[in-house]
Amino acid sequence: MPQPSTRQRDMITIAWLFLGFPLLLIGLFVFFPIGYSLFISFFDWNLVTNQRTFIGLANYTRLFSDSLFWKSTGNTILYTIGVVPIQTFLALFLAFVMNQKIRGRSFFRAAFYIPAITSSVVTSTLFIALFSKQGLINQLFGLENDWLTNPNTAMLTIMANNIWTTSGYFMVSFLAGLQSIPNSLYEAARIDGASTWQQFWKITVPMVRPVTYFVLVLGLIGCFQVFDQIFIMSAGGPVNSTTTLSYYVYVNGFKYFKLGYAAAAAIVLAVLIFSANQVQNRYFKPEVD
């Protein structure tokens, strides 16, 4: 292979300079913490005294014998199973509706998207008020439930909050996908005899499959890591019904000062997310057109 010319060498150097800085940042703030977390999960490390003792896999065995760990894992999985399908379908449905020519379309598009970009503190506070004993939800449906203090409904409230905020975000992704579907396909379907509902299922849904995959993957990863809303709305309660794995990690690390143990739980969470994603890839990935 001929030696690259000076100009080519310059280009390569410049390319590395451009890449270098972001690589440094990502390495420092993403890859290093992940690797380090794995490292400290084998230690007993007190956050306040800063003393470290190597204990091998003891953190992991302790983890698997804590019933709260299993409850958190169960809560996390339940939460994900509840939120991901509903939020995906709702986002697609909203996008489909928002793609039709109806009055006030721009207003509705903004209205559905704004929760997605509103701070989670704001939306959580809003939902606390909505779902309180004398809040709007109870008034509308004539109920008397205190949603967030009832172990059976607290998780539902948090799921509702997340579905409401994240659907808007994914609606935008679906809208983009929808707009790449040529209108003539729908016209051909109309002539073939499809009702609007049938058009939705037989044309829209199959054709946005790549976007659906994207939304499912992001949704899954996000749901496994849900934290903000739980921290603000329920602090993991009542009776640990809303403690998810990420909240369990936080509490163990920063309230009980057991950094190594928390890191172990975090590694378990990471493995869980990775496995779930592999399953998704195997069975749900659409072929590249």
Partner: peptide, 10 residues
């Protein structure tokens, strides 16, 4: 706290 939640909310 969980024990108290058991009393009041469960």
């Amino acid at each position: 706290s969980v024990a108290l939640q058991m009393i009041y909310f469960d």
